[in-house]
Every structure is written in C-alpha cells, then in structure tokens.
C-alpha cells in the first residue's frame, strides 16, 4: 500500500525536478530559489541519514544536529588552518562524526525507548556547549567563513549553482547508498533488530553491533550535510547544533513518512518550504509551524503521505 507504486520512479522524478530547478530559476530571474533549494538539499541529506536509523533501525535520535555542527565546524577549523579542499573537509568531518557517534552511540544504545531519546538529546547538547565555550572559534557568535571550500584547487563552489549541483550529486549518491544499505544483509539484520531484538539474538546476531554501525554511518552522512550547509551559508555557529535543529530533522523524517528514505527527502522539502512560506506570512511563524506539527501528529499516523492516504 504505497502512495506511489514504484519508489525508483518517484526518486527519478523528484531528483530530475531538482536537477532542472536552476534553469527555472534563471528563467524566472530568481536567484534566491537556488539558495533555498541548496539549503533544502543539505537538510535532505541529513534527514535521509536520520531516516536510515529512525525508520529502519527504530532508533529515535533526538540529537542529530550535533553531526550537522561537527561537519560545519570541520570546515571552519580546517579553513582557518589553511586547508580549503572540500575532500579533506569531508574526510575530517566524517572522521570526527564517526568518533563522536561511536562513543555516544555505544553509551546510548545500552538503553531503550525514552532513555535513548533523552540521552542522544543530552549528548548533542554537550557538543553544543562545547562549541559555545570554544572562544577561539567565536563561541556563541560563531565564525564567518572567508571563502567556500575548494574543489581540486578550484574555487568553483563560490558559484551558487555549482554548489547546488555538488549538493545534489552528493544527495543522489548518498540516497543510492542508503537504498543499497537497507536492501543488503546488513539492512535486513537492522530491521530485524528493530522488530525483535531477542529473536535476532537467538538466531545468532548481535543487534548492538549492527545498530551501532548504522548509528555511525548515519552520523557520518549527517556530517557531510553539515559540511555542505556551512559552505552554503558561509557561516558556522553553535546554532547549527541547537536541539531545535535536531527536532526539525525528526519532523522532516516524519513529515515524509518514516522508513522510506525518499520520504525523508520529500519531508525536508515540505518542511523547509512550509517554513519559508509561513515566514513570509508572519514573523511569528513558529507558532503556526508548531500548530501544524501538533495537528499532523495527532491526526495522521504516517506523516503527510498518511494524510493523503486517509486513516487506516
């Protein structure tokens, strides 16, 4: 009972739409469109990463913004040190995120349910306060990046459209990777561990190892999103890892319908467009956004796609 019978087709349509969007922006003479769309794509990567563990592993991480921040600060710190290559920024971000995910994940995964939600939230807050007190990088105010990352020594990412396509390529690549992961033996063990950890253990798997690995993969993917987001805004601050941001990521996944990967991309798009639209209407847009969120949760079981499908 899927809304769209074939996810591959839906993905093709969605990504093609994103690919032609810059041409539309040129035709409409609206360069802001590409800027918003870049932001959407960055968050889509993060939401995709979160859906991988939330939707398939049943791990409700309420601290994923920490990885966005780790990725963003990797750019800021390396750029300050004179290293501007995007590839190196990514590597550093992935390595740092992997270590953070390994340590916090190993502790968080000892617990279940509510505990897991609260502990991931607490660890993200720890990372947040770490960067708030890091006065060498602006503390609470953050740092402005002088230039975007370079690609093979070239400064082509300074062009908004080039940056946009780089993020899009990354998103498509990571989407395909995520699909491959969920279809692999690893992904099936992960889903099995969500459904019934005791049974998985009985047939010889250690759910903890699979869950921790998935948690680390997800953290690394989110850090990549953080690297691109820092490049997009040319500004890095602890606000990247505010717990509201973590909440928004969960909202995106849920808006798109959890556990279907493409839904996360759609959810990020919907949530950010809704935000943009409400912000035009009123400066008090969080009031309306929060109200919509409460209503969606109360009256629909499967995110916005569930709304269209009607109640089961």
């Amino acid at each position: 009972m899927r809304l769209i019978p074939n996810r591959a087709w839906a993905a093709t349509i969605l990504f093609t739409a994103f690919a032609v969007l810059p041409f539309l922006a040129v035709a409409l003479d609206d360069s802001y469109l590409v800027v918003i769309a870049s932001r959407i794509l960055c968050y889509a990567i993060a939401a995709l990463a979160l859906d991988l563990i939330l939707g398939y592993g049943g791990m409700v991480s309420f601290g994923h913004a920490a990885y966005l921040g780790i990725g963003a600060y990797a750019v800021a710190i390396l750029s300050r040190a004179g290293i501007t290559d995007l590839g190196l920024h990514m590597l550093a971000a992935i390595a740092a995120a992997a270590v953070f995910a390994l340590v916090t994940g190993a502790i968080s995964l000892r617990t279940r349910g509510i505990y897991f939600i609260m502990i991931t939230l607490a660890f993200a807050q720890m990372a947040y306060f770490f960067f708030v007190s890091l006065s060498a990088y602006g503390g609470d105010d953050g740092v402005t990046l002088n230039a975007r990352s370079t690609l093979f020594g070239q400064t082509i990412l300074e062009d908004d459209t080039a940056l946009y396509y780089t993020v899009l390529v990354l998103l498509i690549g990571l989407y395909l990777l995520a699909v491959a992961i969920t279809r692999s033996r690893f992904g099936r063990v992960l889903t099995g561990a969500r459904e019934n950890p005791v049974r998985m253990q009985a047939i010889g798997f250690s759910p903890f190892r699979y869950q921790l690995t998935a948690f680390i993969i997800s953290g690394c993917m989110t850090a990549i999103a953080g690297v691109m987001l820092a490049n997009q805004t040319s500004y890095v601050s602890p606000a990247f890892m505010n717990w509201h941001r973590s909440g928004e990521l969960v909202v995106m996944v849920v808006f798109g319908g959890i556990g279907n990967l493409l839904g996360a991309v759609a959810g990020a798009t919907i949530a950010l467009l809704l935000e943009e639209w409400l912000a035009v209407l009123t400066e008090h847009w969080p009031l309306l956004f929060g109200l919509i969120l409460v209503l969606v949760v109360l009256y629909s079981r499967d995110g916005l796609s569930g709304l269209f499908r009607g109640r089961r």
């Binding site: 909440g247 969080p286 009031l287 929060g290 109200l291 919509i292 969120l293 409460v294 949760v297």
Partner: peptide
C-alpha cells in the same frame, strides 16, 4: 516527542 516539540514552538 514530536507533538510536545510542536507545543514548545507554539508556547514559546
């Protein structure tokens, strides 16, 4: 978590 997160936004 989501519904109460929404409430945080509304009430704040």
């Amino acid at each position: 978590v989501l519904a109460t997160f929404g409430l945080v936004m509304v009430l704040t």
